[in-house]
Simulated assay, not measured.
Amino acid sequence: MNAFVRAADLGSLSAAARSLSTTQPTVSKLVASLEASLGARLLERGASRVVLTDEGLRFLESARRLLEDYEEAVAQLDERTVRPSGRVRISAPMALGELRLHALMLRALELYPDLQIDLMLDDRFVDPVEERFDLTVRIGGTLPPDLVARELATWPRYIVASPDYVKRHGRPRTVNDLPEHSFLRYPMWTDDKVTLSNAEGTVELPIQTRYRVNHAVSLLDAVRGGAGIAFQPCWMVNDLLKRKELVRILPQWTGPAQTAYLVYARRRRQPKRVEVMMDLLTREIQSL
């Protein structure tokens, strides 16, 4: 039944086999055995994909519930579930993971001695179903409707520069001064304009960009090194601003905000090990 559900979710027997750490012929035999026991064909096999039959579509949700009931029954029998135990696989953006979540994972290992954590840092969208992650943290982007996406926090982007940059190039006093300065940006922002907001509304300004880099920590390092001005989410720069290692430019203005989500597959009940990590991630991210 698990092989059938994985194949239905991922769209192919080979993908299901990879997710279950077995072979495609094994998954095919398991699904065929299930079909034989039910007396109904659940999947139509194609060259590269499988498609649910009408019977398979009707059976799929019942199969999911049965598998969840089985997992819950096993968990209730296992006294170890009083203390979270087992492996939790988490995916997160590289900068957020490197600067904030890595330390949280180490604290979680101290709090829960029976817990194992795989933290995978990747800026691309990671499908928790296809790639078998218990939890994924995402910042912005399009969120698939078939997943749970819990909004955790919205962070404004500040305009920041290093004290050395301000000393050498002067401090912008109005938004109209910004086009005279060099902005540091991500490569996906290919236009030569920025959008700024304050209490009265928004403005769009032309800017000049001499350096783009696709890594948030590298971009922050470039700002700290005095290479230019940049938008940076508040969670990345608040401590640096307090220590006066960065200067906030035009504090009444902010750039486009970042929104963070906790994304995971739909299920009636999460294992204890996943629940505690959901709580830790939620508290940590909301406090940034």
Rank of each mutant, 00 (worst) to 15 (best):
A260Y: 06
P93F: 01
V129I: 15
T202I: 00
L220V: 11
S85H: 15
V129S: 08
S197G: 02
E68L: 01
P179T: 12
V148Q: 10
A257Y: 01
I159A: 04
I90Y: 00
G201K: 00
L205G: 04
R6E: 08
A230S: 15
R268P: 02
S37Y: 01
R185Y: 09
D122T: 12
A95I: 04
V237I: 13
G97M: 13
E72V: 01
T81R: 10
E55Q: 15
S12E: 06
D123E: 12
L104M: 15
A161E: 01
G46K: 04
P256A: 02
V263C: 12
D134P: 09
A3N: 02
D221C: 06
P206G: 12
G141F: 01
T202K: 07
R266V: 14
S62R: 11
V203A: 03
V276D: 07
P144T: 01
R138V: 15
R45T: 08
L10S: 05
S12W: 05
E131L: 11
D127H: 14
P93G: 06
N214T: 10
E44T: 14
E68A: 01
H169F: 10
L121Y: 04
N198I: 03
E151H: 10
S37A: 13
L106W: 05
A32D: 10
V82N: 05
I229D: 07
L220S: 09
L42S: 05
L66C: 03
W155V: 08
E131T: 11
V175I: 14
R267S: 14
P179E: 10
G46P: 01
P145L: 13
R132I: 04
T154L: 00
E245A: 02
L281W: 11
R243S: 15
E204Y: 00
D146C: 05
S182K: 07
N214C: 09
D54A: 12
E110N: 13
V82F: 06
L99A: 11
T254C: 11
V5N: 05
Y158T: 06
A149N: 13
K244D: 12
Q208A: 12
E55M: 14
Y112D: 12
G56N: 02
L196D: 00
G46Y: 03
L115E: 11
E151Y: 00
L96Y: 09
L99Y: 04
R6L: 06
V82K: 11
I139S: 08
A8M: 08
R65S: 10
D78R: 03
L196S: 00
E180D: 15
L119P: 11
S37H: 07
A265I: 03
D279P: 02
A222Y: 10
L250S: 07
E204M: 10
K193N: 09
Y186N: 08
L66D: 08
E79N: 10
D279Y: 01
E110T: 14
L20Q: 01
D54K: 07
L20M: 08
R168N: 13
E204G: 02
A8D: 05
L250R: 02
P84A: 12
V166Q: 04
